[in-house]
């Protein structure tokens, strides 16, 4: 384990207990005056923190893997079209009134996106370029269908329910949600870790990676399944949370040796930390009518970050 990972682990060790104490009701661990302190901790904040760690780790690692796969520091798991397809599945569950089965619908949406990507791009020597284009196509199709379902909503109440859910949040999530998200995320992370050496080889291009003995189609499937499971699980329980997968690998990369495989672990830890801290801030920010939605907060941070990256790239190209 390298120093970057150790520092991130230490930061998590501090942030996790703090996140349990912070919120609309502040809990003093030395003198808990609130009679509901224990239920708040165990039933509200602990699952929320656990979910932030699970989803954040998945988004961070899948972002790092995507950037390695596409050899592009501006890549993001959202580009794959997997998140929008998962969201489409979730929105369908609202439209059909089967909201209890929402996670199943979202995972089916993600699986549909993965199958589509795999079938379009597999077996082609230039699979990364096809992959990106297929992902963009799926994303715009899913976006259009999602808008269609929203516009056909039977009443304003249903419409607002869908729109609010799409914004992404960890509020009011329970241990049941953790149980839904954690297993697919863990499996996805294992698959992405297995893709590590092939991603390293891809640093020098597809031909070199193949000449080093790596199969492009095996890597494609590892990526599709790994990112699909992680992102699908995330969308299934929290809605769409963007920019984590873009920002975290960027922030962490300068502290690694830049190989994609050595970026995966620190990005997972960094993603977990970012989501945990951002969720805490959402909870404690005073906002009339509830709390700031996590998805909105991260987009508000992420968009300027993306702009700064673009400007830096522009000056490097000039």
């Amino acid at each position: 384990m390298n120093r970057t990972a150790l520092i991130l682990l230490a930061a998590l060790a501090i942030a996790i207990p703090l996140s349990l104490l912070a919120g609309q009701v502040w809990i003093n661990p030395l003198a808990p005056q609130n009679a509901n302190a224990l239920p708040i901790l165990l039933e509200l904040r602990a699952p929320r923190a656990a979910l932030a760690l699970v989803i954040g780790a998945g988004l961070g690692a899948s972002g790092a893997a995507m950037q390695g796969y596409l050899r592009n520091p501006l890549a993001d798991p959202g580009l794959f079209g997997i998140a929008p397809m998962a969201a489409l599945g979730a929105v369908l569950s609202f439209a059909t009134g089967l909201t209890l089965a929402l996670p199943v619908f979202a995972l089916i949406g993600a699986a549909g996106a993965m199958a589509g990507l795999g079938l379009i791009a597999a077996g082609n020597a230039r699979s990364t370029a096809l992959f990106t284009l297929a992902g963009l196509m799926l994303a715009s199709l899913a976006g259009a269908l999602t808008s269609l379902i929203i516009s056909l909503a039977p009443n304003p109440f249903a419409m607002s329910e869908i729109v609010t859910w799409l914004m992404g949040s960890l509020a009011d999530r329970s241990w049941a949600d953790v149980a839904i998200a954690a297993p697919p995320t863990a499996l996805g992370l294992i698959l992405l870790a297995r893709a590590g050496p092939a991603l390293d080889a891809l640093t020098l291009g597809e031909d070199t990676a193949r000449s080093l003995g790596f199969s492009p189609s095996r890597l494609l499937w590892l990526m599709v399944l790994g990112v699909g499971l992680v992102v699908g699980a995330g969308v299934a329980v929290t809605g769409i949370i963007g920019f984590v997968g873009l920002m975290v690998p960027h922030l962490v990369r300068p502290f690694t040796d830049q190989r994609p495989s050595s970026l995966l672990g620190p990005s997972a830890l960094g993603g977990a930390l970012l989501l945990l801290v951002a969720d805490c801030l959402c909870r404690v920010l005073p906002l009339s009518g509830g709390e700031l939605r996590l998805g909105i907060a991260l987009s508000l941070i992420g968009a300027p970050f993306f702009l700064r990256l673009l400007l830096r790239l522009r000056s490097e190209l000039a």
Partner: peptide
């Protein structure tokens, strides 16, 4: 891959290793 080493003409490193 162990037997044959291949060096393409354009093999720019995507990352600054």
């Amino acid at each position: 891959a162990q037997a044959i080493g291949y060096l393409p003409q354009h093999g720019e490193a995507a990352w600054n290793l």
